[in-house]
């Protein structure tokens, strides 16, 4: 069956089957391997994407349910030479170790800041509560999101002035 969806701003038409998960579709058919599989059961958040504006575990979405959806993966944020402030903050805060959870964490952080630009530490923890990291112990990931909030606030005030 045919579906149409927008991935990182680009409209795609794809032939899919229902036993293909959105995760497989993004990774295998579109080559967006920044989307990771850690559990396949919604528990770890490694496969997180932003779907229609909300955090979504792409391992729990049969591909046809993504018809007409708007998807953002980590590849849609910034590139190596032009990082999104949230990505930059993860690098600077030392929040990255093995990196396997990081694409999901970055997206969860971004989604949180889109809605709540000045979160408290507690709000950051709640916002990231669907993402497991086994390396860092979270402290620096939380620092990174707070740092990103500061960066975005400065950027925002610049553009408003």
């Amino acid at each position: 069956m045919q579906i149409t969806l927008t991935v990182n701003g680009e409209q795609r038409e794809l032939e899919v089957t229902p036993y293909t998960r959105l995760l497989d579709l993004l990774r295998e058919d579109l080559g967006l391997t920044g989307v990771k599989e850690g559990c396949g059961k919604g528990e770890c958040g490694a496969c997180t994407v932003i779907m229609n504006g909300e955090l979504t575990a792409s391992c729990l979405v049969p591909a046809p349910q993504a018809d007409q959806a708007e998807i953002i993966t980590v590849e849609g944020l910034g590139t190596r030479d032009n990082l999104h402030p949230i990505q930059e903050s993860f690098v600077e805060a030392g929040a990255v170790q093995c990196g396997y959870c990081i694409p999901g964490m970055v997206l969860a952080g971004k989604r949180l800041l889109d809605e709540n630009p000045k979160p408290t530490e507690k709000e950051v923890r709640y916002g990231l509560s669907g993402n497991i990291c086994r390396c860092t112990g979270y402290a620096k990931i939380i620092d990174a999101v707070m740092l990103a909030a500061d960066k975005l606030a400065v950027e925002g005030s610049d553009s408003n002035d």
């Binding site: 919604g42 979504t56 729990l60 669907g130």
Partner: peptide, 9 residues
């Protein structure tokens, strides 16, 4: 319920 990723779906 669950996490943000679960509540959205």
């Amino acid at each position: 319920v669950g996490s943000p990723q679960i509540r959205s779906r």
